[in-house]
């Protein structure tokens, strides 16, 4: 008999999948409890049940970002040029915000290279770049999860035989429910319109 794995679906989604009509009400109740802060909007990227580990090796889920605004992007630690500039650019966005707003804005960078970027590698970048762990999370998923997150964020990437990764870089602003509010592909001096959206989204999340 057919087995029905649901590897990339969020927990609430998976619970619903396992429910038959007769148990639907019970199961919906259980599914509701599994959500951290109420039902997600249909266009929230937090529907993706993505297993992640942070730079200290702690497991968390994408949906645990629910409740505060977040900047999300993808990078990899052995990248020499664009990825260091990505961190610089995020810092410039933070500096352009009032201090208390900057503290409320979380930054999640997920590696495109989970095979080589283990927690120690991520921790190394966090230390080298003096990234405040209260604000910054550097994370890794598995290979399929990385592909799915990139697909969701519109990030294109291709791992070359040399180990280099061709990838597009985009900085994505999520609201507290995980909806994409704005995105920017500009590195270096941040796009003022993007910074303004970050500021208004943080203010709205108060």
């Amino acid at each position: 008999m057919m087995h029905l794995p649901l590897p990339t679906l969020p927990r609430r989604f998976a619970v619903r999948a396992a429910c038959h009509r007769a148990l639907l009400l019970l199961c919906l109740g259980v599914a509701g409890l599994a959500g951290a802060a109420g039902p997600l909007p249909s266009d929230s990227i937090y529907h993706l049940d993505l297993p992640l580990h942070d730079q200290d090796g702690r497991a968390f889920t994408l949906a645990s970002g629910q409740g505060r605004p977040q900047l999300v992007s993808m990078f990899y630690t052995s990248c020499q040029f664009v990825c260091p500039r990505l961190i610089d650019t995020v810092r410039d966005v933070q500096r352009a915000l009032p201090a208390d707003s900057a503290r409320q804005l979380h930054v999640l960078l997920v590696t495109l290279d989970p095979a080589r970027d283990d927690s120690a590698a991520l921790r190394g970048v966090a230390a080298q770049r003096h990234l405040d762990a209260r604000t910054w999370t550097l994370a890794r998923s598995d290979s399929a999860g990385t592909r799915a997150l990139a697909a969701l964020l519109g990030v294109q990437y291709r791992i070359l035989p040399s180990g280099d990764i061709n990838h597009s870089t985009v900085l994505i602003l999520l609201d507290r429910q995980g909806r994409v509010v704005a995105q920017s592909t500009r590195l270096g001096v941040p796009d003022p319109a993007f910074v303004a959206r970050v500021a208004s989204t943080v203010a709205a999340a108060d």
Binding site: V82, I165, N166, S168, L187
Partner: peptide, 13 residues
Amino acid sequence: DPDRLKFCGAGAI
């Protein structure tokens, strides 16, 4: 083209 910066790593496909 500033979009060139979108690509990290070796040459594009």
